[in-house]
Nucleic acid binder design. Structure first.
Lengths: 233, 233
DNA sequence: GACATTGTGTGATATCTGTCACATATATTT
DNA sequence: AAATATATGTGACAGATATCACACAATGTC
């Protein structure tokens, strides 16, 4: 569903997102970004970036939720993380081989900014505070990947499901009740188990009074117990 | 086994490791580092950093091999990666909460440099090229964690063992024949399987003529087949 | 060299989890 | 509203892998 206003140019000076580059850039630098960036809107389900593609622009997520994923060699989709607004997408790829290692898809209607790669690189080298911000961001990404790795490596199905629920509850939605933006299959892909196993564990948790289930809406009743299950594998 | 010359002060100006900070720092900056850093030697098996400790200094690995690991909640050791010389240890932790998330142990006799954290941070903000180098390093780390995660998530035992062998052969030792610096238990910890499974897969590979085994020395005979096994899970 | 300690190989078994099969529920289209 | 497609729940089963148990080898210690 392509729409005409999909690509509209706005001014970075007027951008209300103060957490982005603007916070540590001076007027001059912001204008540089402004002249070499554009805003774009995506509809729920749209693919923003496809793994394997070359990086030409940095993408900054202005609003909405995005899933970061990859298709394994066996064509199984593995979801790496859910990206919240005010985050740059795919930074590690930029400072590596410049090939995007992940795909990104919109989980809801979103807006992003495309920033020219050369400008971005120049700013990193020019503005130490900006570089530091980016370093913090990439570091967070690294630790996230590490966390996922440990989860996968040391936890069994129950622990992983518990972990995913806490992830949604505490980090993504910051609420005990939330609607998972995924089908059961996608939820399973997120934690690397089969759809059937995901279903079974969720109903088990429901039976044990740990949570309420109503379609894709989940209410965590006993987060402490979830925490314990997550911890003990 | 503590020894007197464990901590000896040398000059960064004279440091022969040109790949480190020195490459992108000017004389003035190098002197700053020099005044706030020191060299140290560790014996094989020594712990260099313990997970959970606060970060006060950056550690640069000058020579030798180091294993990066973490003990899970179930006390099971998970080895994250083998770190080669000319690498900073634990960067992501520095730009995050400043708590070391990993432990590091020397796999052989090594030397490291301790660099004052404040100096390091100042340099990042001051020298864009230095910041960029660090960004590349952290990005590599992030992608490595991601790679490990995908391996864990999508591969079964055989694929993981094959992958580990290729890792040793191609990345760590760059040779078909090498002595694994690990016990079978540690080798298993590296890829997140049981000791017994590790043994079984290795002997299976031996029977199939993929490799030679002589204690901890492994010779890869058929790397192509290993590659295929790794790829197909 | 004898002993203790630690590491390694290998079989038997239990458990966990993916796969298949199908019923039911929900969403979408006509 | 009926029909079709898609998503979800649930049982039966097979296969993979951890665990347990123990024999044997290697290594370190006295």
């Amino acid at each position: 569903m392509y729409q005409d206003n999909n690509y509209k140019i706005t001014s970075c000076r007027d951008c209300k997102v103060k957490s982005c580059a603007a916070a540590v850039l001076n007027i001059n630098e912001i204008d540089q970004v402004n002249e070499n960036s554009r805003e774009a809107a995506f509809k729920k389900g749209d693919i923003i970036l496809h793994e394997g593609s070359m990086t030409s622009h940095i993408i900054y997520l202005k609003s909405g939720l995005v899933k970061e994923f990859q298709k394994g060699s066996n064509d199984k989709e593995q979801i790496l993380q859910i990206v919240k607004k005010h985050t740059y997408l795919g930074l590690p790829s930029l400072f590596g081989d410049r090939i995007n290692h992940y795909s990104y898809a919109a989980l809801e209607d979103i807006t992003v900014c495309y920033i020219d790669l050369n400008i971005f690189n120049r700013l990193v080298r020019q503005n130490g505070n900006f570089a530091y911000e980016i370093l913090v961001s990439v570091s967070r990404d690294s630790l996230n990947n590490f966390h996922r790795f440990m989860n996968q490596s040391q936890k069994k199905t129950y622990g992983r499901v518990a972990d995913a629920l806490l992830y949604f509850s505490k980090i993504i939605y910051e609420s005990e009740s939330f609607e998972v933006p995924f089908s059961r299959q996608e939820f399973a892909d997120l934690i690397g188990i089969s759809r059937e196993s995901a279903t079974r564990v969720l109903t088990k948790f429901k039976e044990e009074g740990i949570l309420h289930l109503d379609g894709r809406t989940i209410s965590v009743i006993n987060p402490d117990l979830l925490q314990q299950i997550s911890k003990n594998g």
